[in-house]
Design a protein around this nucleic acid. Structure first.
Length: 304
DNA sequence: ATGGTTTTTACTGCGTC
DNA sequence: GACGCGGTAAAAACCAT
């Protein structure tokens, strides 16, 4: 087993003491023990295996790998002193065995947590697939979830809700223009529950969330409504201007994005109807109009 | 629970193609 | 006449207290 230091920071505890374990093909944080797998392929298992045999019989080519794999497939007792034939082990191997056993006992002690994680991770995978989440977000959500589990925050709350909350936290943290609504539709829970989970996570894990910027939503809405890049660019600068003039707080960011796009399109003589933009932004035409009025007022725009 | 804020629903009038 | 646009009033949804 070769070990080498790497320069990456542990996403969980910030320690730079990450160790690469080539046998397992994963990084392990020297301080908190978090396991991080390199290059997680975005493949999911659409089945759940409850026994190793079941897993083998249903597996596709290639193992679904994922550092969130709940128990690393360890299900046997690891002996430290002797090998399978009763012969004593060399010191080097012995050391390996200790290490393995530490992991194993750890996962045994936390058997219920492992079970929980397994369920949670397959749910997370499901959501990520539906929502086409980038793998970086998926990973981050997994880490967040692990953390909430360790803090005992899941107790008394539904796993699915907490998973969705963790995912939303990852999304918000990375300033991705995804709404709570989208996530709640993918998971089959109401928004309130997920919002509550999200709140619990943010509060207890001390996550500092960047305020969500309407400009981030412009891209998304623009794409959906199929407007040109010129319009999109103008809309972003419009929002930037409005932001510096107090006019954007407390309003639905996607509505604002839609309004900015509408104004920009009109200035550049591109034809897009309010209805199209409203639909793309998942708001009403009325909201688009209201935001448009706000924008015009705060930016002293004359009608074009 | 309550009150304040924002979004939605529903409806109306105006201009244009 | 249908369509896009602008507005309003009232209901509904949301949020903090």
């Amino acid at each position: 087993m070769t070990k080498q230091m790497v320069t990456v920071k542990c996403p969980e505890c910030g320690s730079t003491n990450l160790v690469f374990d080539s046998d397992m093909g994963e990084y392990v944080c020297g301080r908190c023990g978090l396991v991080i797998e390199e290059n997680i392929p975005s493949q999911s298992a659409e089945w759940r295996a409850f026994t190793p045999q079941e897993r083998d019989s249903r597996a596709r080519a290639g193992t679904p790998t994922d550092y969130s794999h709940y128990d690393k497939g360890l299900s046997t007792v690891i002996r430290v002193e002797k090998d399978a034939f009763g012969r004593p082990l060399s010191p080097k191997v012995k050391q390996q065995m200790w290490r393995l056993r530490r992991w194993q006992t750890r996962s045994k002690v936390h058997a219920s947590q492992s079970r929980n994680l397994m369920l949670a991770m397959s749910e997370l995978q499901r959501l990520s697939d539906i929502l086409h989440m980038p793998s970086s977000i998926h990973d981050m959500a997994a880490i967040v979830y692990r953390k909430t589990l360790n803090e005992g925050l899941v107790r008394g709350r539904s796993i699915g809700g907490m998973v969705a909350g963790a995912l939303y936290a990852a999304v918000r943290f990375s300033k991705l223009p995804r709404t709570l609504k989208e996530i709640s539709e993918a998971s089959q829970r109401n928004q309130k529950e997920i919002a509550r989970s999200y709140g619990v996570i943010v509060r207890n894990l001390d996550m500092r969330m960047p305020i969500d910027d309407p400009a981030d939503y412009v891209t998304k809405v623009a794409e959906k409504a199929k407007v040109s890049n010129d319009v999109e660019g103008l809309a972003i600068s419009l929002i930037g201007a409005a932001k510096s003039k107090y006019a954007t707080t407390g309003k639905d960011p996607s509505g604002l994005a839609a309004a900015a796009l509408y104004l920009s399109a009109r200035m550049l003589k591109e034809k897009v109807t309010q209805a199209q933009l409203a639909k793309a932004a998942n708001v009403t035409e009325v909201t688009v109009r209201n935001r448009k009025r706000d924008l015009m007022k705060s930016l002293d725009l004359i009608k074009a």
